[in-house]
């Protein structure tokens, strides 16, 4: 044991609630520009709004945002909802999807380690991927990492395709059934995500996810 005070300690002393980490992997490649990116941007605001409505989720859910358009960029590190400011998105460049997934998994792994170091309980972290295209980098290793994380219950990985997304690749990436967004229903999708995170962060059950089916006729997704 060293004699240094880990900075994180203060954060967890101030708020010792169990945490539910969720990293959003958002495709911001050039093809997302226009209505897609602006709807996505509003969707982030909806997510923050919906989660803030819940006094406990506000202290328990931690959001991080990683974009991949041209390069993989971490726009927002893990922060609890009450301190989360949706970052501004810009659409540009290719689709380094594989790199983004690897980064996302690594982020949640590291975050979990920080929780454990500080004696903070946590729910299974979520990695939520959103893409509208074709990976422009190798993604097979990322797919293996996802499979590994899911079997070890290290993370729950969700993949959502928009427009011309390569559904085939998403199917190979994700253990769970990937979903196709209906039209531009980003807000409905983030509302669903918020409701799911809220219910996860309340139940205390990290093993089983009983989520509202987003592919119901009134849902935001289709298979």
């Amino acid at each position: 044991m060293t004699d240094q005070i880990p900075f994180a300690a203060v954060e967890f002393a101030a708020n010792p609630e169990p945490r539910c980490a969720c990293v959003l992997l958002l495709d911001t490649s050039a093809s997302m520009s226009g209505a897609r990116i602006s709807e996505l941007q509003e969707g982030l605001a909806v997510l923050k709004y919906e989660l803030s409505q819940d006094l406990l989720a506000r202290k328990r859910v931690e959001l991080a945002v990683v974009t991949f358009g041209g390069s993989v960029r971490m726009l927002s590190e893990f922060t609890t909802v009450d301190q989360f400011e949706p970052p501004i998105l810009h659409a540009d460049g290719l689709t380094p999807l594989g790199g983004a997934v690897t980064t996302g998994l690594e982020l949640v792994r590291n975050r979990k380690r920080v929780y454990r170091q500080n004696g903070i309980a946590c729910y299974r972290p979520w990695v939520f991927l959103l893409t509208d295209g074709e990976p422009s980098d190798p993604w097979q290793a990322a797919a293996a990492a996802v499979r590994h994380a899911e079997t070890a219950r290290d993370a729950a990985f969700f993949a959502v395709g928009v427009g011309e997304a390569n559904f085939d690749v998403l199917g190979q990436l994700s253990v769970r059934q990937p979903l196709m967004l209906r039209g531009l229903q980003f807000r409905q999708m983030f509302q669903w995500l918020s409701t799911s995170l809220k219910s996860v962060s309340h139940s205390g059950v990290s093993d089983e996810l009983s989520l509202k089916n987003p592919t119901a006729p009134d849902g935001w997704a289709k298979l």
């Binding site: 010792p16 609630e17 169990p18 454990r116 004696g119 309980a121």
Partner: peptide
């Protein structure tokens, strides 16, 4: 004990399990 769940320090980090 300052808001800590008694079982939050479990090795698994999972309350149900702890």
């Amino acid at each position: 004990l300052m808001g800590r769940h008694p079982f939050s320090g479990g090795a698994s980090g999972d309350l149900h399990h702890a």
